[in-house]
Amino acid sequence: MKARHIDHVNLRIPEDGVETAREFYGDELGFGIEDALFEAGEKPFLDVRLSATGVIHLWPTAEFEPPTATNYDHVCVVVEESLDAIEAELDAAGIEIDRTLESPLGATGEAAAVYVRDPFGYRIELKARV
Results as ranks from 00 to 15, higher is better:
Val75Ser: 03
Val18Tyr: 00
Thr20Leu: 02
Ala112Gly: 15
Ala128Thr: 13
Arg12Tyr: 03
Ala85Val: 13
Glu81Phe: 06
Leu83Gln: 15
Asp16Leu: 11
His8Lys: 14
Glu42Val: 03
Glu23Lys: 15
Ile56Pro: 00
Thr70Ala: 12
Pro66His: 06
Ser82Phe: 14
Thr61Gln: 07
His8Asn: 15
Ile56Lys: 07
Pro44Asp: 13
Glu19Thr: 10
Glu39Gly: 04
Gly106Val: 10
Arg117Leu: 09
Leu29Trp: 14
Arg123Pro: 01
Asn10Gln: 09
Glu28Ser: 13
Gly94His: 04
Pro66Asn: 01
Cys76Pro: 02
Phe120Val: 03
Arg123Val: 12
Gly109Thr: 03
Pro44Phe: 10
Leu101Cys: 09
Ala69Ile: 10
Ala62Thr: 11
Arg117Ala: 05
Gly32Glu: 03
Ile13Gln: 00
Arg4Asn: 12
Ala62Ile: 05
Leu37Gln: 15
Val130Ala: 10
Ala36Pro: 09
Ala3Cys: 14
Leu90Cys: 04
Lys127Glu: 09
Asp73Cys: 05
Arg123Ala: 08
Asn10Cys: 09
Gly109Asp: 12
Pro66Phe: 03
Asp7Arg: 04
Phe24Cys: 04
Asp35Trp: 07
Asp98His: 02
Gly17Ala: 11
Phe24Ile: 07
Trp59Pro: 00
Val130Cys: 08
Lys2Cys: 04
Leu126Cys: 07
Val116Phe: 03
Lys127Ile: 12
Ala62Asp: 15
Ala92Asp: 06
Phe120Met: 08
Phe45Trp: 14
Glu110Asp: 07
Asp73Val: 06
Lys43Ala: 09
Lys2Pro: 02
Thr61Glu: 06
Arg117Cys: 05
Cys76Tyr: 08
Leu46Ile: 10
Asp98Gly: 08
Pro60Ser: 06
Gly109Cys: 06
Thr68Leu: 00
Glu15Trp: 02
Val116Pro: 04
Glu28Asp: 15
Pro44Thr: 09
His74Trp: 03
Val55Glu: 03
Glu125Ser: 03
Ala107Arg: 12
Phe64Glu: 02
Ile56Val: 15
Ala85Lys: 15
Leu29Phe: 13
Ala40Lys: 07
Gly94Glu: 00
Glu34Lys: 03
Glu34Ile: 05
Tyr122Cys: 04
Asp84Trp: 09
Asn10Pro: 07
Glu102Gly: 08
Gly121Glu: 07
Ser82Glu: 13
Thr108Phe: 07
Glu65His: 04
Pro66Ser: 12
Thr68Met: 01
Asp73Ala: 09
Asn10Leu: 14
Ile97Cys: 05
Leu11Pro: 14
Ile56Leu: 13
Lys2Gln: 08
Glu102Tyr: 06
Glu28Gln: 14
Ala88Tyr: 08
Arg22Glu: 11
Asp91Ile: 04
Pro67Cys: 02
